[in-house]
Every structure is written in C-alpha cells, then in structure tokens.
C-alpha cells in the first residue's frame, strides 16, 4: 500500500464495506434518537407527539435508573475482576506440564460454547436451586441451611453465572500470552534472585499487560449488555435488585410498551458505554501501543 495509486484503489475497494457498516450503524442509531424525542407508547398507536427531552427526564429521574446503573457497573466490574484474576490463575495452572493437559485445556474452554440462556438455566435449576440444586445439597450435607441464591443474592449470583461463561475466554487469551513469554527471561530473573512471586509481578504480569488489556476491553463491551442471564434467572428481581440498564430498557419498551423512554434509555446506555470506554482506554489503552 505504498504508492498513491494503490492507496486510491484500496479506498475504492473498501468503500462498499465501510458504507454498509456505516448504514448498519447509523439507521438504528438515528431511529433510536428519533424515537427518544417522541411520546410513543405501543398501547396508543398513532398518537406520537414530539416531547423534547421529556423521555430523558422521565428515564433519568426514575429511581430505578440509578439502581440499574449501579447494577450494571457492579456486574461489569465483578465479572471483570473474577475473569481476569481467575483467568490469570487458571492460565498459569494450565501452563504447567501435567498429565492430561490437552484434555483439561479443552474442558476449560467448553463453557464459552454454551449459550448464555442454557448456562443460566443450568445454574438456576441444577446448581443454585434452593431445593434441587447441587449447592443446596452440599449445604444440607454439611448441616447448613441451604441458600436461595437467586432470591437473596441475585446480583452476585448473576455475576457468578456470567463470569463462569467468560472465564474460558480470559483464560485462553492469557494462556496464549503466557506461552509467548521467553523462557530465558524467566531463567534470568531466577538467577537474579527473584522468587516465584517476584517473577510473577516483575516479569509475567508486565508481559501479560497487553493480553489483560484486550480481555478487559472486549469483555466490557459485551458485559455492558448482559441480558439473557437476567431474563432467564431472576427477571431483574427481586424488585429491581438485579436489573441492569439493558434490562431496564427492556422493561420500559416491552413490558410497559413505552418506546419513547426505552429509546431515551438506549441513548443513555450508549453514552454510558462511551464514557466507560473512554475511561478504559485512558487507563489501560497505552498497554496496547507497541
């Protein structure tokens, strides 16, 4: 792509894809923006009127909004923490030579291939269920009162379920990064008097910085919009204890038929996602520069 001519040709060739992606993004975004300024309820079709920022006011002053905002951030933060720390730990374990390593690696990757709805159902009915669940059975076996996870600790339980699904992704990326660490570097550190802990913090962790950044950024994008796990397990409850922003928007639009404020909520969610993205890029984006 060195010459002017090839550059022009390249632009020309890329144009259709770029235009299509642009349209793909702009049209729904434009419609959402448009709807967010209308009083638009599906129960009263044909009665749309322009309300200015009315929908935004309604959505943002709803006490449920701040709860949902907090829940979203807790869910993202908790899952990130669990997957990054757990993924690093698992990756280091999987990097050790042991018998049957290939099969274990395959098994560790498996949760990533399970659909969120399915995994949430499995967690809900087979693991966390207060009567039939495995955890309840263990608790009873040890003489404790079983915990009704989804009723008493709804947000924590959902975080656990989501983290379980994302852990393989983090593990896989970190494991690949770990394997590209030069063996002589570790040996040099060993000769320099660094113990396993020092080697981890001074050599391994800096080497993993880039992979951890990528994991954090990619996961954040997806975790801001967690939905299926909530719908299947708690339905946002009890009350709104496990409602996050996407779920709140869903409640507005499809349970209360209020497309206008749902759209306003959508725009708010987009702005929020961008704020989070800017924060993340500021904080850790420099790791991606080579």
């Amino acid at each position: 792509m060195a010459t002017l001519q090839t550059q022009t040709a390249a632009r020309f060739m890329m144009a259709p894809a770029v235009v299509m992606l642009l349209v793909w993004m702009i049209v729904p975004l434009g419609m959402t923006l448009y709807f967010s300024f209308l009083r638009y309820n599906l129960l009263m079709p044909g009665m749309e009127v322009f309300t200015g920022f009315g929908n935004y006011e309604f959505f943002l002053t709803d006490p449920a909004f701040f709860v949902a905002l907090g829940n979203t951030l807790l869910l993202v933060g908790g899952t990130l923490l669990a997957t990054v720390v757990g993924g690093t730990f698992l990756a280091i374990l999987l990097d050790q030579p042991f018998w049957g390593r290939g099969i274990v690696r395959l098994l560790v990757i498996a949760p990533f291939f399970v659909m969120p709805t399915v995994s949430a159902l499995v967690w809900k009915n087979m693991l966390m269920h207060p009567v039939n669940g495995l955890f309840a059975w263990i608790a009873r076996g040890l003489g404790f009162e079983p915990v009704d996870w989804l009723a008493t600790l709804p947000l924590f339980s959902i975080t656990v379920i989501v983290a379980w699904g994302w852990l393989p992704f983090a593990t896989l990326i970190i494991l690949t990064a770990l394997q590209s660490l030069d063996r002589e570097q570790k040996e040099a550190a060993e000769m320099d008097g660094a113990g396993p802990v020092s080697i981890f913090f001074h050599i391994t962790l800096p080497h993993l910085a880039r992979a951890l950044t990528a994991v954090t950024l990619i996961e954040t994008i997806f975790l801001l919009s967690v939905f299926a796990e909530i719908l299947v397990t708690t339905g946002g409850g009890p009350g709104i204890a496990s409602t996050n922003l996407p779920y709140l928007i869903y409640i507005q639009a499809l349970l209360q038929y209020d497309v206008g404020s749902a759209s306003a909520g959508g725009v708010v969610a987009i702005i929020l996602a961008n704020i989070v993205a800017v924060f993340l890029i500021r904080m850790i984006g420099k790791n991606l520069e080579a």
Partner: peptide, 16 residues
Amino acid sequence: PARRSLAMVFQSYALY
C-alpha cells in the same frame, strides 16, 4: 540458582 552467586549472560540476552 540465585544462591550460587553466579551470574549468567544468555545468548538471547534475556533482557526484561
């Protein structure tokens, strides 16, 4: 290795 008070220079340099 660290307790042998030896220092090693590697072929790949192994700098951090």
